[in-house]
C-alpha cells in the first residue's frame, strides 16, 4: 500500500494506493493518527486503491469520526469494487463520496 500526503495549511489530501487490508491497515491508521492534528479538511483520494477489507474500512471510519469532531472528510475517485463495500455495509450513508 502507498500513502502520499499533501498538506496545505489545514487541508490534507492523502492519496492511498494498493490494497488496504489487515496487514496494511495499521500503517494507514498510524499515518492518520500522526497527521490529523489541526486538519479541518481531509480528502482521501482512492483512485489507486484496488481493495479494502474490514480492517481498512474500520480505519476509514475512525478517520471519519475524528474529522466529524474537527472539520470534514470526503472520499474521491472511489472505484466500483470499493463503493460496493461502502454500500453493502451501510456505511455509504455516513461517508461523503464525490
Amino acid at each position: 500500500m502507498t500513502i502520499e500526503k499533501i498538506v496545505n495549511g489545514s487541508v490534507l489530501t492523502m492519496n492511498i494506493g494498493g490494497r488496504l487490508d489487515t496487514t496494511t491497515a495499521p500503517e494507514l491508521e498510524a499515518a492518520i493518527d500522526a497527521s490529523l492534528a489541526g486538519i479541518e479538511e481531509l480528502t482521501l483520494d482512492l483512485e489507486a486503491l484496488e481493495y479494502v477489507s474490514s480492517a481498512g474500512l474500520r480505519v476509514i471510519l475512525k478517520a471519519q469520526k475524528i474529522m466529524n469532531a474537527q472539520g470534514e472528510m470526503k472520499l474521491i475517485h472511489v472505484n466500483e469494487t470499493i463503493m460496493e463495500v461502502f454500500d453493502i455495509t451501510g456505511f455509504v450513508d455516513i461517508l461523503t463520496i464525490e
Binding site: 477489507s53 474500512l57 471510519l61 453493502i88 455495509t89 451501510g90
Partner: peptide, 13 residues
C-alpha cells in the same frame, strides 16, 4: 465479502 463490520442502517438498506 468477509466483512465483519456492518452499520446499524444495513437492515434498512
Amino acid at each position: 465479502a468477509e466483512l465483519d463490520i456492518l452499520s446499524s442502517n444495513v437492515g434498512l438498506r
